[in-house]
């Protein structure tokens, strides 16, 4: 069954674009143009994820979020904001949202984050000690990484990077998601800083292997998985 996403966004062009993109990806999208409608729709609990604009006419995004959490609705929420300043980001994250995206953003970034949130909500909280993808195996306790029979030596930073990727097998992770997830670093360096990390990791994992696992996703980021 297709997953439902609620989009609360007052700007028609942005809404059309986001809704259209999400439908192309196979989601069912409901759209609310203001906070009141958004709050009304969101309380029915059938949504896998809510994309909530911060600045809305009438009831604003933060108020909708507060009301939603107050009513005990735990649906993952991504806040969209035209305010990029860091204090707003901090406020967004401490107010009960699960993620925060500053406008303008790449659609791929939003899509990756929605998939991550939906995946996280479904995965539960089971503690894993071994992460796998194909014949790649990461033991979190002994901190050993093996591809088939071959042991892979990783630097601590490479280990954490691979761990983050392996926790999101078959999901696209963007460069900013990696920076936030691996290093808790919220400034996008804007250069190919992350690409260099990934190309080093790829060399250690995929070099000489018939089936590469680490894939670059055009215009979005990276994905680890057995599917090419």
């Amino acid at each position: 069954m297709a997953q439902k996403i609620l989009l609360v966004e007052d700007d028609a062009t942005t809404a059309t674009f986001i809704a259209g993109g999400l439908r192309e990806e196979g989601f069912v999208v409901d759209h609310a143009e203001n906070g009141r409608d958004g709050l009304f729709l969101s309380t029915d609990g059938s949504y896998a994820c809510i994309v909530l604009d911060r600045m809305l006419p009438g009831l604003d995004g933060m108020a909708v979020l507060a009301a939603l959490r107050g009513a005990g609705v735990a649906t993952p929420v991504i806040i969209l904001s035209a305010l990029g300043a860091a204090e707003d980001r901090i406020m967004g994250l401490t107010s009960g949202s699960d993620d925060y995206l500053v406008k303008p953003f790449a659609f791929a970034e939003l899509l990756a984050r929605i998939r991550l949130l939906i995946g996280r909500a479904g995965a539960g909280t089971a503690q894993q000690t071994v992460l796998r993808c194909g014949d790649l195996e990461m033991d979190l306790l002994s901190r050993r990484v093996k591809r088939g029979e071959r042991t892979i030596e990783l630097q601590p930073r490479e280990f954490r990077l691979l761990e983050f990727l392996l926790r999101h097998v078959d999901q696209v992770v963007t460069r900013t998601m990696l920076l936030e997830g691996v290093w808790d670093y919220h400034f996008d360096p804007g250069t190919n800083v992350i690409d260099v990390h990934l190309s080093r990791l790829r060399k250690k994992i995929d070099e000489g292997e018939p089936r590469p696992l680490l894939h670059t996703v055009r215009g979005a980021g990276y994905r680890i998985g057995t599917e090419p």
Binding site: D11, T13, F17, G21, P104, A106
Partner: peptide, 11 residues
């Protein structure tokens, strides 16, 4: 807002 739309169009 216009930049968002510009990006969206390019996307």
């Amino acid at each position: 807002s216009p930049l968002t739309r510009l990006r969206s169009a390019l996307d």
